[in-house]
Amino acid sequence: MHDKFILLTGCSGGGKSTLLSVLAERGFATVSEPGRRIVADELAGDGKALPWVDMKAFALRAIEVAKSDLEAAQHLDGPVFFDRGLIDAAVALEQSGGQTTRETLGKNLPYAKRVFMVPPWQELFVGDADRRHDFDAAVQEHHNIVRTLDNLGYIRNMLPKISVNERADIVLRDCGAL
């Protein structure tokens, strides 16, 4: 476990990427969501690993990207904030019929014990060309992540439905970066 690697996770469309942007603006190291990067690559390429085409292929690719992100972040100083990451990808793989999250992660948990989550927030949720699932699917995904984090022994810090700057203040205070 790396205490400096802080995971932001939870419901799709709950404000994680916006929160990550604010943290970056405040000078902290950040890592963008693997899934969005993969979708962009796949839309520009053959599209075989798009989540709405082949979820298992997408999840396997997300695991590779998340592992690469973790390796690349090793040299960064101070806290590093991840928008989604290896746990989210492992949950997606398990939900698509692949190996279990525990099998994917092995014995080493990749992030700090405290994980920050955004709740389902319908008013923020917007489908787009890269996010083709509906709000109900996003809520189910959220529940799967919650269950997995609990099973892995992470401490979940559910962020309230407040402004992004207030959320950033909570995250920074609670992880000791303020």
Rank of each mutant, 00 (worst) to 15 (best):
98 G>W: 02
172 L>S: 08
43 L>T: 04
76 L>W: 03
86 L>Y: 07
162 I>T: 15
115 V>L: 13
124 L>W: 10
96 S>R: 10
123 E>K: 15
45 G>R: 12
96 S>H: 08
4 K>F: 11
4 K>S: 14
89 A>Q: 04
105 L>Y: 10
125 F>S: 13
174 D>R: 12
19 L>A: 07
178 L>E: 15
65 V>L: 09
83 D>Q: 10
49 A>I: 00
12 S>D: 08
146 V>L: 15
29 A>I: 08
139 V>W: 03
161 K>D: 14
20 L>P: 00
79 P>Q: 05
132 R>W: 09
9 T>V: 04
18 T>Q: 11
83 D>F: 06
62 A>H: 06
50 L>H: 10
99 Q>D: 12
130 D>A: 14
152 L>T: 03
100 T>P: 04
55 M>N: 12
42 E>N: 10
59 A>E: 11
70 L>P: 11
29 A>P: 10
52 W>N: 06
10 G>N: 06
2 H>Y: 12
55 M>P: 02
166 E>Q: 15
67 K>A: 01
69 D>R: 01
147 R>T: 14
38 I>S: 05
15 G>E: 09
174 D>F: 04
69 D>E: 12
62 A>R: 08
34 P>S: 08
86 L>D: 03
92 A>E: 13
178 L>P: 04
136 D>Q: 13
96 S>P: 00
66 A>N: 10
155 I>W: 13
9 T>D: 08
169 D>A: 15
72 A>C: 05
21 S>K: 15
123 E>I: 09
17 S>P: 01
4 K>M: 06
74 Q>E: 15
159 L>D: 07
101 T>D: 00
55 M>F: 07
5 F>K: 01
101 T>R: 09
128 D>L: 07
69 D>I: 00
166 E>P: 05
47 G>L: 04
116 F>I: 08
38 I>A: 03
146 V>K: 13
91 V>W: 11
85 G>M: 04
141 E>A: 14
178 L>S: 15
38 I>V: 10
78 G>L: 09
67 K>F: 04
20 L>S: 14
